[in-house]
Structures are given as C-alpha cells and as structure tokens.
Design a protein around this nucleic acid. Structure first.
Lengths: 180, 180
DNA sequence: CCCTCACCATACGGCACCGTATTGACAGCG
DNA sequence: CGCTGTCAATACGGTGCCGTATGGTGAGGG
C-alpha cells in the first residue's frame, strides 16, 4: 500500500494548469505528456483513461477553489465583512479556471461540479444576507443577483478586460449596490 | 453576378443552429453536411474554409442578436422603460447562443465579436443610466454591473437552472435593485 | 544473484475531422 | 445540339488525438 502517488499528483497539477491556460481540450493525454517530458505510457499507468484525469482535475478544482474559500470566509463572523471578502476577492483575481470550466459544461462531470459550486455559493451568500436582516426569499434573490455579477465579471475580465477600467472603483460600486 | 446565395444561406442557418446546440465544435463541415443531407463538396463550393463559415456565423449572430435588439430598444424614449425592456428580456429567454460563443473565445473571430458586443451593450446601458440622472462615471459602473448580471444569469440559466426558481420574481428583484 | 514489480517507452490501430482533387449532373444559351 | 458555368458527390491524403499491447529498465527483496 502507501502509494505515494507523487507522479500521479504531478499529472494532476499539470492538468489543472493546462485547464486554466487552454481549456478542457488542453487536458489531453499526449500534449500533457509532451509538456511533462514523458510519454503516454506513464499516463495510462496512473490513470484509467482521459475521463479519469478529467474527473480528478475537476475534483481538485472543487476542493481548492470552491470549498476552500467558502470555509475560509465562513470563519468571518460579521456577515457584511464576509460578503465584502467574497465579492471583493472576485474583483482582485479573476478566476479564469472557473470560466474554463463553464466553457466545458458539455462534459457531464464538469456540469455537475459547476452546478454544485453554484448551489453551494448561492446558499452561502443567501445565509449571509439573511444574517443582514433580509427575509429568506429576498436574501435568496439577492444572493442570486450577487452570484450573477460574480460570473459576469469573471467573463468580462477575460473577454473584454479593457471595458472594466478601474477595478477597485467598480468593486466598491458593486459592494455598495448589493450590500448597501 | 447576382449570386442568389440561397444555399449558402442554408449552410449559415444550419451553422447557427448547430452553434446553439453543440457549441462551436459543432460548426464543423462534415457533421453539418450530414445534417443537411449533402456532402462536403457543396460546402467547399460556397465557403473558402471552415474559418470562413465561422466568421459568417459570428457575423450573423452579431446582426441578429446584438445590433438588432439594441436598435429595437433604442426606439423606446423613456430610459427606465428601455432598461426594463433589456433586463426583462434577459430573464425571459436565456440567450444560449451567446453562452456558446463565450465558450469559444479562444477563436479570435469569436473573441472579437464578443468583446464588441460587450462594448456596445455596456455603452448603450450607460447612456440609459445617464439619462436617468446618474453621473457619467457612476452610470458606466452601473452599466457594467447590469451587464455582469446579464451574463451571469445566462450562465445560471444554462448550467444550474434549478437554482433560479421563480424567474419573474427574480427579474423584478433585479430591476428594482439596479434601476431603482 | 536473480526476480519481481513499479514505472515508463515504443509502436500500433482506430476515429473524426479538415481540405483538395477529380469527376459528374444539369440548366441556359448560342 | 453542344458548350459553359454552377453546383454537388466521391475519393483521397493529412493531422491530432485516444487507447492498447508489448517491450524495456532499474531498485529492492529473497
């Protein structure tokens, strides 16, 4: 036992990088093998198939970029500050991996993960808005609105960045409008 | 002269449909030929290459789904109503072709069109907000916010529709928050 | 000292697509 | 009737990827 999995890990890291840079199409066996300086022989030792690698990559993203940040923000007591943290961070570093995944929802594994992420994030936001005193229904709608802006901004950051102008000012504007 | 272009038109229509259903990857010569009941021989008569078809398809989308609606809304005098029209329509029919294009911004032609669309739409919204009395800077930020929600909602409609719940209520909520 | 086993290389067949001939079919006109 | 131009079918070669089969290689255990 104790499979130290260190080379499998290497493949997974490379896959996540490739996803960010070239989309899911770049999470392909032969290109990755070239990038890693090995051949497919290695890959098919560590993974059952390309689908297997994709599943692992998506799961990795979910751990690192969905559950992680949500747990971190959950440690903040004040709901207003918690929201600021989440919506502010959205402005700072545009989550390009996320958009790459949205580009690939035709893959059922990806669609499932993306849907789960949306569900968790909206629920998290809704809870914060409830703590701010909004009614449950209103809090949920406000959460959907906030999450929509998050996704939309990520898109603009990638596809029309020159449009965004002063990011910090926009972040303040959005926070003011949505959190109040 | 007078190339009646009727069969080229058929290819273009089919391409736009395929784009909506299967993304840009589905805008492929051989699959489309199969769907149309012809062979590639026809295609390479009407088009120089696949890139040519893609360019034509994107241009078609831009005419039908960007410039068209914007001109239509431009006919509304009252800026509040104009905004309602645009943001409301966003809730009614989720523009899945648009999302498919976002999925394909790696293609430079697509990226250019998407960026142009964003630029035009944001400018249009900003003008409306200015007419509502906002300062230019504030109007622009508000326009960016509104457009972000548009994109984000389109994403949710496709990838996590069960999350959206009552669309009409959400539309009202968003309008209330953004237009006031 | 050899053998096993984890690990990787090589080489192959298959598939789906792009693009290029080359060859027909058919309509209108002289 | 034959010629020409428009359009489509067939057939081919090329590319990039997936997955499999099979053959090394080197380190540790008996």
């Amino acid at each position: 036992m104790t499979p130290d999995n260190l080379d499998r890990e290497r493949w997974e890291r490379a896959a996540l990088d490739a996803l960010e840079r070239g989309g899911l199409a770049a999470v392909a066996v032969e290109p990755l093998a070239r990038a890693l300086g090995v051949t497919k022989g290695s890959f098919y030792w560590h993974f059952k198939s390309r689908a297997d690698l994709i599943a692992a990559t998506v799961a990795r993203w979910e751990r690192l970029h969905v559950d992680g940040p949500l747990q971190a923000a959950g440690a903040i007591d004040d709901p207003r500050e918690r929201l600021m943290e989440l919506l502010g961070r959205a402005g700072a570093k545009p989550p390009s991996i996320f958009i790459r995944l949205l580009d690939a929802v035709d893959e059922p594994v990806v669609r499932a993960a993306v849907a789960r992420a949306a569900q968790e994030r909206v629920a998290f936001l809704a809870k914060a808005f409830r703590e701010l005193g909004l009614t449950p229904a209103r809090a949920r709608r406000q959460a959907l609105l906030a999450y929509s802006t998050y996704v939309g901004r990520a898109h603009l950051a990638r596809d029309a960045p020159e449009l965004l102008g002063d990011q910090a000012a926009l972040s303040r504007h959005i926070a003011e409008q949505l959190i109040g």
